[in-house]
């Protein structure tokens, strides 16, 4: 698994026949950050899986851009990014571009970006794009959703004795769980992500 951890980056990968790329993007630090990834699936049967986890705190800007070009036939791609936002002026943007070229028959692709707003004053922009130049494909889909952990939900947890920060940590951990599972992160990596997540929530006020 290739990793881009807590830093801005611009990467371009070209995959040959049956080549597999697994990529993890983590943005759990406090600096503004911009990660730009481009993958060309040039070889028949190549496969890319990209996972992203990010957490924007007050005033922090996190930008992600993912471009996957399906050029050869029988390639697969899967993109899953999840982000949490907490605090006024926390901003994230996510742009996904999956282009299925005219020779890319039997393509199978899915791109997903989900955001969780933990407070007022945070904003998540999410734009998954899909361009299809051949109809002869297995699947091509995209999903984008921004949810909110609202006052009523926070109250419900608090009304059972759970303090506000613990409640937020539980919810964000649950939200990130899908990535932890699908990206098969080991215990050390999980621990590190959860540590940073707790730090970010503890930091507030």
């Amino acid at each position: 698994m290739d990793k881009i951890l807590n830093q801005s980056a611009k990467k371009h990968y070209v995959l040959g026949e049956n080549q597999v790329l697994d990529l993890l993007v983590v943005q759990m630090h406090d600096a503004d950050c911009e990660v730009d990834i481009k993958v060309d699936l040039e070889g028949i049967g190549s496969n890319v899986n990209i996972f992203g986890i990010y957490f924007a705190s007050a005033g922090q800007i996190i930008q992600n851009r993912v471009v996957v070009n399906h050029i050869a036939p029988k390639c697969t791609s899967s993109i899953l990014y999840k982000g949490a936002l907490l605090g006024s002026g926390a901003k994230t943007s996510w742009d996904g571009f999956v282009n299925i070229g005219e020779n890319a028959v039997n393509t199978d692709t899915y791109e997903t970006n989900r955001n969780l707003l933990l407070s007022e004053g945070a904003s998540a922009v999410s734009v998954p794009n899909l361009e299809i130049l051949t109809g002869d494909i297995v699947r091509a889909g995209h999903a984008s959703a921004t949810g909110r952990f609202d006052d009523q939900q926070l109250f419900y947890l608090m009304s059972r004795g759970i303090d506000a920060k613990t409640a937020q940590k539980l919810i964000v951990r649950g939200f990130f769980e899908e990535i932890i599972q699908n990206a098969e992160l080991d215990d050390l990596e999980q621990t590190e992500i959860f540590k940073q997540l707790e730090r970010k929530i503890d930091e507030v006020r």
Partner: peptide
């Protein structure tokens, strides 16, 4: 007192329409 402080002091409210919360299982909660 905040809601969690009240709960720890001994108050329990069963809501008329209990809130749904994604991201946490009933048992973990």
């Amino acid at each position: 007192l905040t809601a969690d402080e009240r709960a720890r002091a001994g108050i329990f409210l069963a809501q008329q329409s209990p809130t749904a919360v994604d991201g946490i299982t009933l048992s973990n909660f």
